[in-house]
Amino acid sequence: MLLEVDGLKAGYGLVPVLRNVSLQAGPGEIIAVLGANGAGKSTLNRILSGLLRPWEGVVRFDGVDTTGADASQMVAAGLIHVPEGRRVFPNMNVRENLELGSYRRGRQDRARNLERVFGIFPRLKERVHQLAGTLSGGEQQMLAIGRGLMGNPKLLILDEPSLGLSPLLVEEMFGLISRIREEGPGVLLVEQNVVQSLTVASRGYLLENGRVAMEGAADFLLNDPELKKAYLGL
């Protein structure tokens, strides 16, 4: 397994957010982590990428115990988190944003990866000298994902990539996620968008109230009557 999470408990101050989360992701696999607002998705991401320390539990990445490692160590190991809200560098142009994607990892492949990212996102190439702060929301999302790909990720965490995008762009984004998987890295897709996420993913986990409420193969989850009722209103 590329990523193994076992018995994770975490929170802020005295308030628990994750009560008991375990999940696995294999190399090159797309895993969907689904859940409503407040289910603990963002907290899980922050722990995996080293921004937050868990209270209890173990995180193993690429065969190494990385529990409590900081963000720069996780990036160096090949786990790259494309955060919710994009977090691009608004005062820097598209090229500089991408170059910083290989600040900690993949520096020797910078030129090759730039071309690769421009191949996936031709729109970024058109805007290469434009400041990231002046890009549209969809373009900023592409830039954030492109910046993540610059570091040769083994696992890419995509945190709500469809948030705030128009329906047409959401379609495009999910198409691109399948395309990214062909490039090699595994993807942990963290989304509220249940149907489209399960369409591109091979397996899924449903978080509810800080616990894994349901897990299994994507098509199994898609046809689950409980899930349909709770999340799709069918």
């Binding site: 790259i80 988190h81 005062n91």
Partner: peptide
């Protein structure tokens, strides 16, 4: 330089900088 770019990145977007591995 990468150092200069990292400095400018930290100036405006600390969390984004952390997530590309900037200490």
């Amino acid at each position: 330089t990468d150092l200069g770019k990292a400095i400018r990145a930290v100036a405006r977007e600390r969390e984004g900088a952390r997530l590309v591995g900037v200490r």
